[in-house]
Design a protein around this nucleic acid. Structure first.
Lengths: 205, 205
DNA sequence: CGTAATATCAGGTGATCACCCCATTCACGC
DNA sequence: GCGTGAATGGGGTGATCACCTGATATTACG
């Protein structure tokens, strides 16, 4: 029995290559291709496919966000994430969110195709190099969702007062989160905080 | 007359999609596909193609390095660079090195195909958004050497006093440079300054 | 039920930052 | 020679940050 699959990938050529490879396997029906995260979410919501293959970095919503929404609207859909340059933190979040498979764009096509077939069959596929990265992320993480939100706001250049307004809390609360972030990351300045967060993939530009 | 072309792209699916699209156009002979920069250089050296399509980020040697080597060994080869996330600084270097065309991976396939055909015909193709980024890089280069030093020190998380000690000047001087940096970059916080500098490739982690 | 973690906020203090004005020196170009 | 800009710094001010000691409410977990 053929499996329905949707693809989300903002680079048209990559999407085309992926479609071609999956088509040749003869076990997948590609029911839709999205060029950004928003499209991907609504596509999954509408078609409830057996399988979704998502690029990690996309305009609108990234692969992680799409994964979470997919889980909400179509829990039976098996989700694979494809990424070019994986950061440990993000991979950790993906695993935590229950992703079914992770693939690197520079892997051999056969590896990826085989992996996707395995995922469609119900397996979980996490390559060794990714698993290593995730292990490393586990030790460094420990930040709460709220703290990450504050981190993102800081990266946008907002002051405590502005962040407070944006998140609907007092500036003092933001200050608390900021202090906690500093302590957890082991730094004492906004600059170091940002550099570390970028290096660890907690935020991006 | 058909043009010979080589492709360098480390993501197999993207390479496949690109090959397919170029093949369908019926005006190109794909004489080789390289999966990294080193392969790309030796391939160009051997085949001296009419046209080379290079990914910017590749293992071994990046698109810029391949471009420079290509110019040395096969000056007649028209070179197009394809990139996912362009940094103004790098784009500036590409233009300076005399690249024939720049394409963004998330552009429409037709746009890219048309552009490649134009390049093969002898034109130069620099999209508006890229040209804008390059222009901005020109202004970003308006920073002085001393200001860049201070920028790097800030990114290392040092305070004005520490930077002053490190550079052998007073904290007040550092403060002046910092103020000038803020004005030149059009921001009002250390966080924004860092994010902008990172985005523009002025500093990295 | 206890307790641990999280999120919320206040008051306060000293350090630092962002930015203003200003002066000096030095190099480069017209 | 004279203007321009870079690099150097001093003085000063108000905003903001970094961090502290608390307090309270909610949620989660054993």
């Amino acid at each position: 029995m053929r499996k329905s699959v949707v693809i989300a990938e903002d680079h048209a050529f990559t999407a085309a290559g992926l479609c071609a490879a999956l088509g040749e396997m003869g076990v997948f029906d590609i029911v839709g291709v999205a060029a950004n995260g928003i499209e991907a979410i609504s596509l999954i919501k509408q078609t409830r496919p057996d399988c979704a293959i998502l690029d990690l970095s996309m305009p609108g919503a990234n692969g992680l966000e799409v994964l979470i929404e997919a889980r909400r609207w179509s829990p039976a859909t098996r989700v694979a994430i494809v990424t070019g340059n994986p950061s440990p933190q993000i991979l950790g979040q993906l695993v935590e969110a229950g992703v079914d498979g992770i693939f690197l764009k520079n892997s051999a096509p056969e590896t990826i195709c085989a992996g996707i077939r395995a995922i469609a069959a119900g397996e979980k596929v996490i390559p060794a190099e990714v698993a290593g990265a995730v292990r490393k992320a586990g030790t460094g993480a420990g930040l709460t969702a709220r703290e990450i939100e504050v981190l993102h706001a800081i990266a946008r250049g907002l002051s405590n007062a502005q962040i407070g307004k944006a998140l609907g809390v007092s500036a003092k609360t933001v200050d608390s989160h900021r202090t906690t972030l500093m302590r957890k990351m082991g730094v004492h300045s906004t600059a170091s905080l940002l550099v570390l967060a970028l290096r660890d993939g907690l935020i991006d530009i």
